[in-house]
C-alpha cells in the first residue's frame, strides 16, 4: 500500500522517464546491438517499473498512471523477453533463407508433389477414358479444339496474337498465379484440406492437358509450349502447397509437446521466405509465358524452347538444393 501517492510518483518518475527514453531508442533501431551496461540498465529499469506497477495495483483510482506504467512494462517486456533475432532486410541472407527454408521442410514439399501427381494421374485417366470430360476438367476455351488443329493453327499463324497486349497478359498471368500460390498457402489453415484441393485440381488440369496432347501426337508442341514457363511456374505453385502443408502441420502438431502458438511461431519465418521466393519465381514465369511460351515453330524452334525450360528447371533445382548449404 502506498501511503503518499504524490511522493511515490515524485520518487519514481525519473525511472519511468528513463525507461521510456531507452525504449524509444531501442524501438527506433531494432537492429542495434546494445552494450552490456545498457542492457543491465534496461533490465533494472524494467524490474523497477514492474515493481511500481505491482505496488500501484492496490491503488485503483489511478487509471492513467496504471495505464502509463502498464504500457511501459508491456513495451519493455516485449524487448526483454524476445528471443528471436530482430528481422532485418538483408538481401543476401533473405535470398538464402528461401532455399534453406525449402530444405528444412522437404517432407511437406514431397507431399505437395505427390498430391499434384495424383491429380495429374486422375486428369490423365479421365480424359483417356472419356474424351467428353475435357469440357469439364479444362474450363478454357482455348483448349477445346483438338490438339492437332491447334498446333496447325498456331504454327501457321501469320499475325502475332498477343501483339500489343503482351505486357498486360504477362501481368495478368503473374497476379493470377501469385494469387493461386497464396491461396495454396493460406488454405493450409483448414488443416491442409484446402491446400490438398488446390493442388489436386491444378494437377487434374495439367494431367488432362498432357493426356489430350500426347494422345493427339503433339508431345513436342506440348513440351515446347509448357516447359519455358511451366518449369518455374509449376514448382512455384508446389512451393505454395508446401507452405500450406507446413502451416497445416503446425496447426495439427503431431507428436510434439509444444503449444500451437509456439509451433506457429517456429514456422513463421520459413513460411514467409518460401512464399516470398515463390512470388519472385512467378514474376519470372509470367514474363516468360507472355513473351516466349506463346511463340511456336517456326518463330522459335521447339528444341530451343524445350532446352530453355530444362535449363531453368536445373537451375531452380540447384538453387533450392544447394544454395546456402553449410
Amino acid at each position: 500500500m502506498i501511503i503518499d501517492l504524490p511522493r511515490f510518483v515524485q520518487a519514481e518518475k525519473p525511472y519511468w522517464d528513463e525507461l521510456q527514453r531507452v525504449l524509444e531508442t531501442v524501438e527506433a533501431e531494432p537492429a542495434r546491438r546494445m552494450p552490456l551496461p545498457e542492457i543491465q540498465r534496461l533490465h533494472y529499469l524494467y524490474e523497477r517499473c514492474s515493481a511500481d506497477l505491482a505496488r500501484l495495483d492496490t491503488f485503483a483510482t489511478e487509471p492513467q498512471l496504471r495505464a502509463f506504467l502498464e504500457s511501459l512494462v508491456s513495451r519493455a517486456y516485449s524487448e526483454i523477453h524476445e528471443t528471436r533475432a530482430p528481422f532485418r532486410i538483408a538481401w543476401k541472407s533473405l535470398a538464402l533463407a528461401f532455399p534453406r527454408a525449402f530444405r528444412r521442410h522437404l517432407g511437406a514439399f514431397r507431399l505437395a508433389v505427390a498430391v499434384t501427381l495424383l491429380g495429374c494421374a486422375f486428369g490423365w485417366f479421365i480424359v483417356r477414358q472419356d474424351p467428353q470430360a475435357k469440357a469439364v476438367v479444362m474450363p478454357f476455351p482455348g483448349l477445346m479444339t483438338s490438339p492437332a488443329e491447334r498446333v496447325a493453327k498456331e504454327e501457321s499463324a501469320k499475325a502475332d496474337r498477343y501483339k500489343g497486349v503482351k505486357a498486360t497478359f504477362s501481368a495478368e498471368l503473374m497476379t493470377n498465379n501469385i494469387r493461386v500460390t497464396l491461396m495454396a498457402m493460406a488454405a493450409g489453415i483448414t488443416w491442409g484440406a484446402g491446400t490438398l484441393i488446390v493442388l489436386f485440381f491444378n494437377g487434374v488440369i495439367l494431367g488432362a492437358v498432357a493426356a489430350d496432347y500426347i494422345a493427339g501426337g503433339q508431345a513436342t508442341f506440348l513440351a515446347g509450349w509448357l516447359l519455358p514457363h511451366g518449369s518455374i511456374e509449376i514448382p512455384a505453385i508446389l512451393l505454395g502447397g508446401q507452405a500450406g502443408f507446413i502451416l497445416a502441420g503446425a496447426l495439427i502438431g503431431w507428436g510434439g509437446r509444444t503449444s500451437r502458438s509456439e509451433r506457429f511461431r517456429a514456422v513463421a519465418h520459413d513460411l514467409f521466405a518460401i512464399v516470398a521466393g515463390a512470388a519472385v519465381l512467378l514474376v519470372w514465369a509470367g514474363l516468360v509465358e507472355a513473351f516466349i511460351s506463346q511463340y511456336h515453330q517456326p518463330v522459335i524452334p521447339y528444341s530451343l524452347k524445350i532446352g530453355f525450360g530444362v535449363c531453368e528447371l536445373v537451375a531452380l533445382a540447384a538453387f533450392l538444393g544447394w544454395a546456402g548449404r553449410e
Binding site: P30, S78, R84, F87
Partner: peptide, 10 residues
C-alpha cells in the same frame, strides 16, 4: 506480448 515481427505481419 513479444515484439511483432515482419513474418508475422506478412
Amino acid at each position: 506480448g513479444l515484439r511483432l515481427q515482419l513474418p508475422q505481419i506478412a
